[in-house]
Design a protein around this nucleic acid. Structure first.
Length: 466
RNA sequence: GGGCCUAUGGGCUAGCCUGGUAUACUUGUGGCUUUGGGAGCCAUUGACUCCGGUUCAAAUCCGGAUAGGCCCA
């Protein structure tokens, strides 16, 4: 299966062959996390946890079900989610008086509680997050990790004394994102979403998009500024120094298993996946090369090598299955293990370990004496090299446009837009492309709206989306 | 919301029109020989989505259910 020619089929194929997810569970869009896929996702969760804990967020876990009465308090929010939530209508043999919704996201679960938790300005800022499953009834074609009905979701929610303080939180979120994305070796764009595409109930939304090999964008997360749009209906207020009661200003930050989907798309080739070392369930795999006269010696040396690396903190897998080495190479290549270590009679004699990089195919030898440092260094090099390659690939897919006379295929378009809804809709309807929004980070630009010709100092990007 | 298509071992699939013994490959299991890029031989496990109808007889024909896929709005 060729990656560039038909990304959609390639993706489905690789998810199955690399054993990341089993889609045979009999509910569409609700897939089973297999051990290998779950390990990768857990590693991603771990990276997120680490950054959030370091910035003073506390992990919480709210109930899965939300009463209809709470769910419907914010009017825009319910309008946005009405058609894609699951309802629990019965309990045992009884019909429920108040129906329950399976959370599509947790604003309406958390905010009634926030109203109880926040009383004083000293309780602020409140910064919590949870990593849980959420449910959205997708009617379109589902795809592992990219479009599913049960979503492995990360969401942080914060409350602040003022709009400015909430804005500082958004800046912190952007900072956190850059750290996480670096570990995932993922490039991304930050765009302030159009008014008609922002999160239901938000003041504004920053979309986080990455580009797939077919030139379509994949939204991997979003950051929202709510102002007091939710704190008003939910009555989340605090008492300030002067004894006045004020509504809190809120933000949220959400990402999901799409991060894993993005990694699969960004780092892989026709031989399979390439896992970024910080995400890889196994960072190195040891393949003992046994011949009939040295079996016990090699087996013992391989065990010792695995123990050393593991003690050093490297996630290592010793593959001592009774199979040919070549067959093992293929197995671990398709699963994307970044580094392969071969240990055979020749290596033991020479006091080295033979390595092969998954990303470049480069082979070499590391002195057994310094094996821990050697492996660590190689993993770092692989990580940097993956990031650079992905960054280049993303940049190559952006095309600056002066006119719309001919639309290139498989590209992200960048052009001037006056920002008005009429021009925006006209563009989206005519070209069947989605406007991603204007850059979140300041950017020098002067041009003309590509639709109406009005002068503008902001570019916008548009693309087909996954 | 409207329409079309599909369902056979773990995976992929033949058979269905024209009713009667279910095919190949792959995987799994056991054994022996092997092991520096997908090993070979032998043995072996394993399936007609479900409910009903027609029939001496249903994977096959008919009706319904369920699940999945596609197209249109």
């Amino acid at each position: 299966m060729e990656k560039e020619d038909n990304f959609g089929d390639w993706y489905i194929d690789i998810v199955e062959k690399a054993n990341l997810s089993d889609k045979r569970y009999p509910i569409k869009g609700m897939n089973v996390w297999t051990p290998y896929g779950w390990k990768a996702m857990s590693n991603i969760d771990g990276l997120i946890r680490k950054e959030l804990d370091a910035t003073g967020h506390d992990e919480v876990c709210f109930p899965l079900m939300i009463p209809e009465t709470e769910f419907k308090k914010e009017k825009e929010h319910i309008k946005g989610f009405d058609s894609e939530v699951y309802w629990v209508t019965h309990a045992g043999l009884n019909e429920l008086d108040v129906r329950l919704v399976l959370r599509p996201t947790s604003e309406t679960a958390m905010y009634p509680m926030f109203a109880l938790w926040v009383r004083s300005h000293q309780d602020l800022p409140l910064k919590v997050y949870q990593i849980v499953n959420t449910f959205r009834y997708e009617t379109k074609q589902t795809r592992a990790f990219m479009r599913v009905r049960e979503i492995h979701f990360f969401e942080s929610h914060t409350c602040h004394v003022s709009e400015e303080d909430a804005q500082r939180q958004i800046e912190e979120d952007v900072e956190i994102l850059s750290k996480i994305a670096k570990k995932l070796c993922l490039p991304y764009f930050l765009s302030v979403r159009t008014d008609w595409d922002k999160f239901p109930g938000a003041y504004y939304t920053v979309g986080i998009d990455t580009v797939m090999p077919n030139g379509k964008t994949l939204q991997i997360g979003s950051i929202h500024h709510y102002r007091t749009n939710f704190s008003e209906p939910y009555g989340i207020t605090y008492e300030n120094e002067n004894g006045e009661h004020k509504h809190v200003h809120q933000t949220t930050y959400g990402m999901s298993e799409r991060l894993l989907g993005a990694i699969i798309g960004a780092h892989s080739d026709d031989s399979g996946l390439i896992m970024p070392p910080d995400v890889a369930p196994f960072q190195a795999v040891i393949i003992p090369i046994i011949s009939k006269d040295n079996g016990p010696i090699v087996a013992e040396a391989a065990l010792a090598l695995a123990a050393r690396l593991s003690a050093y903190g490297i996630r290592v897998k010793l593959d001592n299955r009774d199979a040919r080495p070549g067959s093992k190479y293929y197995d671990w290549e398709i699963r994307g293990v970044p580094l392969r270590l071969e240990l055979g009679g020749r290596d033991i004699e020479n006091g080295v370990v033979t390595f092969a990089r998954r990303d470049t195919g480069e082979k070499g030898a590391i002195e057994l004496r310094n094996i821990e440092q050697g492996v660590e260094l190689l993993l770092k090099i692989i990580s940097v090299s993956l990031s650079e390659k992905a960054e280049k690939s993303q940049i190559s897919k952006v095309e600056d446009m002066d006119s719309l006379d001919s639309i290139p295929e498989g590209k992200i378009l960048r052009f001037g837009w006056c920002g008005c809804e009429e021009c925006g809709h006209k563009f989206e309807d005519t070209y069947d492309l989605k406007i991603l929004g204007t850059p979140y980070l300041p950017e020098e630009y002067s041009g003309r709206c590509i639709i109406c010709g009005k002068a503008t100092d902001k570019p916008t990007m548009a693309a087909r989306t996954m």
